[in-house]
Design a protein around this nucleic acid. Structure first.
Length: 568
RNA sequence: CGGGGCGUAGCGCAGCCCGGUAGCGCGCCUGCUUUGGGAGCAGGAUGUCGGAGGUUCAAAUCCUCUCGCCCCGACCA
């Protein structure tokens, strides 16, 4: 393709709106342009990358036995009402009405639509397992879209859905997708890591996220160095504490702590370390009951774990008025001692503590030498805190490290959540009506492109892994002599015949401009053709990633490039 | 939704405090020269100053309302 005939509006300067490197470089390289917050047009270069990723996904999904379909973007409210998600999904679900005032939504995911298809069309266990996927534009009205393609409101997603006759078979389907995802992200040239994850609002029993490791990632993962355990921090289990205090209980004391509202304040004031305190967090459940959650002063509560324990979905920290009403004190002085008619649950670490400090449920007051059972009753002790770097791995006890990751893929074993709600049944080999066991599997296609840039760039621009590069070779004639023109033309034809994807910079620009744009766009190989080289019978081939430069005769260039591209 | 910030030419910005009828760099167009890491000279085009209302002889500038965008947070299959 010739640069003069493709829309590649490169920018010299960084657009001010772009904060992270992938967003900045995609804008500068003319790959994307913003239409509205979180909504982008893919220009030719950007679309080529997207298509490359899609094709890798297609090949691997097909290889794994999934079949491609295409569901509509709009779906009727009735389907979403059947599963309760019309209300549950909240504002993230973009809704609209047709001319008859019927409710529709723009699909953020397609469990309802595919399950409806299944219940209509599948009758027998002989048709199972079934796995259908699509690659399609999704819409989620994110609270805060950001970072270009990283968190858009409209984005391209591959979503797959499996239906199985039983749990065992469903696990096989799940594993096939897991394996396919590993191949997909490996082929995309990404440094990634599968981690255990929470199922969140989509439901189900087992889940892994595929995280591209990058500092700009919005997710935190915990993992064993060189080990097998890795989990999203939301999910990571914490082992019960081994350090159980054997101190003798001391008499309860009241202490005045004027204005000491934070763990830090209280510790400083009492000359204690935070692990001698217990924080009391008051949470409000959706039905407006208040639950006190106790965690050690140096720990953070994990709301997902609390939700799981309480069987709720959306607890929120109680607002200050409620806290004042419940504890008779401003926020900062809540404690479990003397709390009436409130459920108290505690992190397991609290169980082993003796003579700790808690809020006094009165302004400027704390209690010293507090002990469970003697001073208050805990309904349940459980793993309720956020795991952190340094905690022992729940598998091997080895200390966990933490890293930032970009979630590019997510696989779920859903169980019967949707098949039950929507009646997705089939007849098993005994002629018995049976609910299908479902799984669902997503890949953020556009996010994968952005994630790849986060991992593959330098100060001058992008460095595409060959399988998803918009072009393999960037052809750069840098002088205007007839010899250069002829050599370029001949090489261009030769590369095309060899099925190498080549971008020929045929603009009347100076060498520097071409070199800089080429570095920005980041094709794996740059071929420079100029009189300086041709005088010695050579052209120059630069490896974008390493900067390595080789000189070859023009007639040798195609075979050199073919060989190097094939080896990847 | 809470906090912070920004809307002036395609991009990056100045002008605003202290009102006087819009400017700089890059890009774009024409010509000549130049041509191996973002060329030089000459000439040229491009703005409802985000929008609406108000104050004023006069508004990019002051006031009110409004829309959009970015960042942090809450949220997130």
């Amino acid at each position: 393709m010739r640069t003069s005939q493709v829309l590649i509006p490169t920018l010299r300067e960084d657009p001010v709106e772009a904060e992270i490197v992938s967003h900045r470089l995609m804008l500068r390289a003319g790959m994307i342009r913003k239409v509205a917050a979180g909504i982008y047009t893919y220009l030719p270069l950007g679309l080529r990358v997207i298509r490359k990723i899609e094709n890798i996904i297609r090949q691997e999904m097909n290889r794994a036995g999934a079949q491609e379909i295409l569901m509509p973007i709009l779906s009727p409210a009735e389907l979403w009402r059947e599963t309760g998600r019309w209300d549950f999904y909240g504002k993230e679900l973009l809704r609209c009405q047709d001319r008859h005032d019927r409710d529709f939504c723009f699909g953020p995911t397609h469990e309802e639509v595919i399950t409806d298809l299944f219940r209509r069309e599948v009758r027998s266990y002989r048709q199972l397992p079934l796995n259908c996927y699509q690659i399609q534009t999704k819409f989620r009205d994110e609270i805060r879209p950001r970072f270009g393609l990283m968190r858009g409101r409209e984005f391209i997603m591959k979503d797959a859905y499996s239906f199985d006759r039983d749990e065992e078979s469903a696990r096989v389907s799940y594993q096939k997708m897991y394996d396919a995802y590993e191949r997909i992200f490996t082929r995309c040239g990404l440094n990634f890591r599968p981690v255990e994850a929470d199922n969140g609002m989509i439901g189900g029993s087992m889940s892994h996220e595929f995280m591209v490791l990058a500092e700009t990632g919005e997710e935190t993962i915990l993992y064993e160095e060189g080990g097998t355990y890795a989990a999203n921090v939301e999910r990571a289990e914490v082992l019960p504490p081994t350090d159980v205090s054997t101190d003798q209980p001391l008499p309860l004391e009241t202490v005045s702590t004027p204005g000491m509202k934070t763990v830090e304040d209280v510790c400083k004031f009492l000359s204690l370390t935070p692990d001698h305190l217990v924080k009391t967090l008051l949470y409000q459940t959706p039905d407006n009951t208040i639950v006190a959650v106790l965690v050690r002063g140096d720990h953070e509560a994990n709301e997902i774990k609390v939700n799981r324990l309480l069987g709720t979905t959306e607890i929120i920290l109680a607002d200050p008025e409620i806290v004042t009403k419940v504890t008779s004190a401003p926020v900062g002085f809540a404690g479990p001692v003397g709390l009436k008619n409130i459920r108290i649950v505690a992190d397991q670490a609290v169980q082993g503590m003796k003579n700790f400090v808690v809020g006094g449920n009165a302004n400027d007051t704390h209690f010293l030498n507090v002990n469970c059972d003697r001073d208050f009753q805990v309904e349940t002790f459980a793993d309720l805190r956020q795991a952190k770097a340094g905690d022992p791995s729940p598998r091997t006890n080895a200390p966990l490290s933490s890293a930032k990751g970009i979630e590019v893929g997510h696989v779920f074993l859903l169980g019967t959540k949707y098949s039950e709600a929507m009646g997705a049944n089939f007849l098993d080999d005994q002629g018995k009506d049976t609910m299908a066991i479902m799984g669902c599997y997503g890949i953020g296609v556009s996010r994968t492109a952005a994630a790849s840039i986060e991992q593959n760039h330098d100060a001058k621009g992008m460095i595409w892994p060959t399988p998803i590069a918009p072009f393999h070779v960037h052809l750069l004639p840098v002088t205007n002599s007839e010899l250069v023109q002829e050599t370029t033309e001949t090489l261009y034809q030769s590369l095309i015949e060899a099925e190498i994807e080549v971008l020929w910079d045929d603009r009347d620009e100076r060498a520097g401009v071409k070199f800089n744009d080429a570095d920005l766009i980041g094709a794996p190989y740059h071929v420079t053709i100029g009189d300086k080289g041709l005088k010695n019978g050579v052209i120059e081939i630069k490896h974008r990633r390493t900067g390595e430069m080789v000189k070859v005769a023009p007639s040798e260039a195609t075979s050199y490039l073919s060989q190097h591209l094939a080896s990847l």
